[in-house]
């Protein structure tokens, strides 16, 4: 068989693709619409929840305050605190207390 004959045959096959039956098209479209309905239900539930959450917690300002407080709490808990010696060293640097000043003459 000549190559050109085969090319012609393949080109003819392109125009004679099987035609989907109306039943198949209907099944596929039913699937498509069912999937759309499934997400829309899921999205609507999510929207309802996000709409009622601020009402549950108070106003938007209160929600923002709570979020800030929560973040601050996390930060305080996570950050390593400095030891107290840093503070005491700063307060008492180069300061000496003479506990027995009246007996100084003994050592002189």
């Amino acid at each position: 068989m000549m190559e050109q004959d085969l090319d012609d045959l393949l080109a003819a096959a392109r125009t004679r693709a099987p035609v989907p039956s109306p039943a198949l098209m209907a099944r596929i479209l039913t699937d498509a619409e069912a999937e759309q309905d499934r997400w829309q239900t899921r999205t609507a539930l999510k929207r309802r929840w996000t709409r009622f959450l601020p009402l549950f917690l108070g106003s938007v300002g209160a929600t923002a305050g709570m979020a800030t407080a929560a973040l601050a709490g996390v930060w305080i808990g996570y950050a390593q605190p400095e030891t107290l010696t840093t503070v005491t060293a700063a307060l008492w640097a180069d300061q000496r207390v003479d506990l027995l000043p009246t007996y100084a003459f003994v050592t002189e």
């Binding site: 693709a17 099987p18 035609v19 989907p20 198949l24 098209m25 596929i28 479209l29 498509a32 619409e33 759309q36």
Partner: peptide, 14 residues
């Protein structure tokens, strides 16, 4: 949904 079904189904089936 309808447009995609009509366009793509014949190609996939073929």
């Amino acid at each position: 949904a309808r447009a995609l079904t009509l366009r793509l189904t014949p190609r996939v089936l073929g």
